[in-house]
């Protein structure tokens, strides 16, 4: 795998100069490769990891397990397409195991999300059942620990 992608995954705000230094490659090559990846759709976008709990923004996330009946020839594609078009839906994953689709939904309150599930998701034709789990606290997200800074326990004992 291209190390450039690894670095951008680690921190999308590295400057091209920093990326060039870390990889030991000319800055122009880095710029070109990023453009290429964006064009190809390998890089789909850049986002910020925000600890919403520290802001005054009211935001709640739920994970909804959907059991669905797959359609002949198109399998899960059709229902997944339908579900992912809702603005409230943050991500949709096809899962192995006890249920089929994992849907992450964000909303302002329990009420809002519950209504979304009851009025929009549950009534869909191929949906057999839903189970809604509200996310209570985020400890670590996308590889980043959200609560407190890790403490460096190392001491200068000798050089």
């Amino acid at each position: 795998m291209d190390k450039l992608l690894e670095l951008l995954n680690e921190n999308a705000r590295y400057t091209n100069a920093q990326l060039s230094a870390m990889l030991g490659e000319p800055k122009e090559d880095i710029e070109k490769r990023i453009k290429k990846y964006e064009k190809q759709g390998v890089i789909k976008g850049y986002k910020t990891i925000i600890n919403w709990e520290m802001t005054d923004f009211e935001r709640l996330t739920a994970i909804i397990e959907l059991k669905v009946s797959p359609k002949k020839n198109i399998g899960f594609e059709e229902i997944a397409e339908t579900v992912m078009r809702f603005d409230e839906v943050e991500s949709v994953y096809l899962m192995s195991g006890g249920y089929d689709l994992m849907v992450m939904v964000t909303g302002k309150s329990f009420q809002e999300i519950a209504m979304f599930v009851a009025k929009r998701l549950a009534p869909l034709d191929s949906v057999l059942s839903t189970a809604t789990h509200f996310l209570l606290s985020r400890y670590k997200q996308d590889g980043v620990i959200l609560h407190g800074e890790p403490v460096d326990e190392r001491r200068n004992i000798l050089l």
């Binding site: 670095l7 100069a17 920093q18 230094a21 870390m22 990889l23 030991g24």
Partner: peptide, 9 residues
């Protein structure tokens, strides 16, 4: 990676 970064810096 860090060595290159710090040296460049």
């Amino acid at each position: 990676k860090r060595r290159r970064l710090i040296l460049d810096g």
